[in-house]
Design a protein around this nucleic acid. Structure first.
Lengths: 141, 141
DNA sequence: TCTTGACTTAGAGTTAACTCTAAAATTTAT
DNA sequence: ATAAATTTTAGAGTTAACTCTAAGTCAAGA
């Protein structure tokens, strides 16, 4: 019914150090302690860790995640703040995805360019290549 | 024909401090200096900054970017390393985008959940809601 | 010319997010 | 019962990427 910090580390891929650090930062206020002081993680705590991972991996700083957890702990009076936070974060993530996709085009161009350059053994000649030039126009129009 | 560090800062949104820091880290080896020691950026340097921004914004550490610049400076003998680098980075960026899109689904679910919770004034009731529960199943199947 | 603002360097300081250490206590395996 | 592994705390150390300071030099406008 409960997991040790080591078990949770294995499950999540985080280290035990990082889990304790998260707790210290107020990100895991629901983790229980056994009589002798060992942390006992519940499935609910694993759910919180998954949420933390989701927000962290999409670029939210730990402070922002803590704010959410604090709002959660404050109860239903903060429902609208939490909704706002998720809406704002969604917009940021969508913006991020767009930027990634745009940058991916530039990286793709570089790959085409360097494939040609490797073929010719010469970067300058590859840059001169009409097909490469046409691609360049498309991306940096 | 040339831009001062302040002009480049305005153009790129970076600070002059950051531009000098990048230079110190070996990311801008082509920037010239005037007779009296002032940096003079060329359009080519702005192109390098755009490339740096592209790689940085897609998660490449400055050390990785420096490696690319060092390879570039070494000439055509390193063409294949540069091609490899871009291919590897492309794969990472694609992986990132996938993860972002997946996390976006989770965030979307939270938005739906909190919209319902705000409507009801109660999170627990929103969690009980059949439509919400169905959505949850879809995402955390 | 004077002054104001931009630029120079070297180097110190900051922030976020870990990452590690040490010494002691607890738990698990034999 | 004992050895080995895991966990505890407090606190120090690390890394990346800035960010700022100080003291001096340079440049443009009145």
């Amino acid at each position: 019914m409960g997991y040790s910090i080591g078990e949770v580390a294995k499950k999540t891929g985080l280290t035990t150090h990082t889990l304790r650090y998260y707790e210290k930062e107020g990100l895991l206020p629901f983790v229980r302690k056994s009589g002798s002081g060992l942390r006992v993680f519940s499935d609910n705590d694993l759910g919180w860790l998954a949420m933390i991972e989701c927000l962290k991996d999409t670029g939210m700083p730990l402070k922002g995640i803590k704010q959410y957890i604090d709002w959660f702990s404050a109860g239903d009076a903060t429902l609208s703040q939490r909704l706002e936070m998720f809406k704002n974060h969604k917009a940021k993530v969508q913006e991020q995805i767009k930027q990634y996709q745009n940058n991916l085009k530039k990286i793709d161009f570089k790959i085409k360019l360097y494939e040609k350059a490797v073929e010719l053994g010469n970067l300058d000649q590859a840059i001169q290549d009409p097909a490469i030039e046409e691609l360049r126009q498309k991306i940096y129009k």
